[in-house]
Design a protein around this nucleic acid. Structure first.
Length: 280
DNA sequence: CTACCATCCTGGTTGC
DNA sequence: TGCAACCAGGATGGTA
């Protein structure tokens, strides 16, 4: 489900219940998701207070008072639900992990497809496993100057495929890659290395703009994504190209019967949507 | 190094 | 209506 805007929406939704609060207990209702849960996870996390709640790419990181912490990734279908003051001990289908807070609030990690992750992090998580080589934060201050342009220049893959590479830019997934390329007027088929510096600057602005707009409305809900209070995001209503094959491109007033409208192709096994007239 | 592929899963949608 | 095939927002490890 989640790309950067959805993950950021979830992180913000978690803040009131998690940040500065103490975790009383962790209930693991199965031994693993994508990978096995860390040994002694429950013992090591229980009793700790959450000092920081951060996001890096599509990951949410909780730093605890002992300097250790944990990370989670929502995979394709992960959701976080917050249950206030419920004595109900019956959990729903696919409610795999439950953080029970000191004040009785339950934070539930639900994930039907089980592509999600839950893992431990150390004080220097930033230089560890998935984060060490991860690309820059697109909403960070110096996104363009943090090597994004250079990384693109060295890529032979199409620009769309490059945008999905978390080592080039963190947090962009299929939806926002398509939308950003449309906004920037760049064909997804163009080789990353052939994108000019002017186009790269335009792309940077387009990525930031589309991500910020999506965050503002709670992300995109296609099927699974929900805010922590259960509400849907509604950026899907603003899609220009994603999931709009054959429909009119906003900005093209051409005859759809002749042009076929928005086109869908498959790149690196993923659907790409674009307007061949607006994106060169 | 890069590109491509299969794989981990369930569930919603599509097409016969 | 029933059912099977296909598709999905991601990451990774293997192979060529």
């Amino acid at each position: 489900m989640p790309e950067l805007p959805e993950v950021e929406t979830v992180r913000r939704g978690l803040e009131p219940s998690l940040l500065g609060r103490r975790i009383k207990d962790v209930i693991l209702r199965r031994p693993d998701l994508r990978s096995a849960f860390p040994k002694n996870f429950r013992q090591e996390i229980s009793g700790q207070k959450v000092m920081k709640l951060e996001r890096r790419g599509k990951y949410i990181l909780a730093v605890l008072e002992n300097g250790e912490g944990f990370g989670l990734h929502l995979g394709m279908s992960g959701r976080i639900k917050i249950q206030e003051l419920s004595r109900d001990q019956d959990f729903g289908l696919h409610d795999h992990v439950i953080f029970v807070m000191e004040d009785g609030v339950k934070i539930i990690f639900n994930d039907p497809r089980r592509f999600g992750q839950l893992f431990k992090i150390g004080p220097h998580w930033d230089s560890e496993k998935p984060f060490a080589k991860m690309g820059p934060e697109p909403l960070g201050k110096n996104f363009l100057k943090t090597g994004f342009g250079v990384k693109l220049k060295n890529k032979k893959a199409p620009i769309k495929t490059a945008l999905l590479d978390q080592n080039i830019v963190a947090g962009v997934g299929n939806i926002y890659a398509c939308e950003a390329l449309f906004d920037a007027g760049i064909s997804p088929l163009k080789k990353a290395g052939a994108v000019s510096s002017t186009q790269t600057e335009k792309l940077v602005r387009a990525i930031q703009s589309v991500l910020n707009k999506a965050i503002k409305v709670g992300g995109s809900t296609l099927r699974d994504h929900r805010k922590t209070n259960g509400e849907m995001g509604y950026f899907q209503h603003y899609f220009s190209v994603y999931d709009r094959e054959g429909k009119a491109c906003p900005g093209c007033d051409c005859n759809i019967a002749k042009t076929g409208g928005i086109r869908r192709v498959v790149q690196a096994g993923r659907s790409t949507f674009y307007c061949p007239r607006k994106q060169k």
